[in-house]
């Protein structure tokens, strides 16, 4: 059985329909990438996965628990299994790097022992390749460093699933590649299920086990990178052609 099952989810904000019957299965231990045009509801979909938004109709399951029917206490428990790496890192700029990474330790896991928290923060910074930056403020970090610290904060509670919201947006190709490698490391070394929203089509074909193409609020095409590459859906073909033509130029 799939780790996360999304069944026929509809969501509208006022008269604007964002999700129009979205269904998708996310398998444990895989990297699933969600691609699509801007404004197709990719970030809204992420917020449904962890129960921040509730669908108008449809169901979402995490293992045997229905996220869409969960009460607040159950949602708190479900969210402990998820980490969320935001597009802009979303680091708290009133805190330094160490306080940012320790925040979920204190708030989510209830760890109040400062030495234990400091040790975990230090281990996490070593793992993402940024040792010794505990006392730096988010404003002192480059875009790539901020993203990696954001990933460290999402990982520190040892979740089962890590959600990456456009991890390479705003980065130069070299830094973007570093972040894509980090996604793969998170999946292979820590054995986490990764769900990635991205516009980086080339990277999605390189790192993903499964790709889902979102169009007009539904998954228009899904499958392995090879299956998606062979898709006859006109918009998917256009997306792929444009991305790989850029590479040839």
């Amino acid at each position: 059985m799939s780790m996360i099952r999304v069944e026929d989810v509809y969501k509208a904000f006022g008269e604007i329909e964002i999700l129009r019957g979205l269904s998708l299965n996310i398998e444990e231990g895989e990297i699933t990438t969600i691609i699509g045009q801007s404004g197709t509801g990719k970030s809204v979909f992420f917020k449904h996965l962890i129960g921040i938004l509730k669908p108008d109709t449809g169901k979402i399951w995490f293992h045997d628990t229905e996220v869409t029917a969960a009460d607040n206490d159950t949602l708190v428990e479900i969210r402990k299994h998820f980490g969320y790496a935001f597009q802009g890192a979303a680091l708290f700029d009133s805190m330094n790097v160490a306080e940012n990474i320790a925040f979920p330790l204190r708030e989510v896991l209830g760890i109040t022992d400062k030495k234990d928290a400091a040790r975990r923060v230090s281990e996490m910074l070593d793992w993402i390749g940024l040792p010794g930056i505990e006392n730096k403020r988010p404003a002192e970090l480059s875009g790539g460093m901020r993203k990696r610290v954001g990933v460290a904060r999402a990982l520190v509670t040892k979740p089962d699933v890590l959600l990456f919201d456009e991890p390479t947006t705003g980065l130069d190709p070299v830094l973007g590649e570093t972040i894509n490698d980090l996604v793969v490391r998170v999946n292979k070394e820590l054995e986490l299920t990764c769900v990635v929203i991205t516009h980086d089509i080339q990277a999605s074909f390189r790192i993903s086990d499964k790709i889902a193409f979102l169009h007009e609020g539904v998954v228009a095409v899904e499958g392995s990178p090879k299956e998606v590459a062979r898709s006859t859906h006109p918009l998917v073909k256009k997306f792929i052609e444009n991305s790989f033509n850029e590479l040839e130029v």
Binding site: K47, I52, V76, R79, Q87, A90, F92, D93, E107, V108
Partner: peptide
């Protein structure tokens, strides 16, 4: 201004994802 900046830079969303 401080809370507004936290809203537009997704810091408030980050809190929600951690059930804070």
């Amino acid at each position: 201004a401080e809370i507004g900046t936290m809203r537009v830079t997704e810091q408030i969303d980050a809190m929600e994802t951690m059930s804070v």
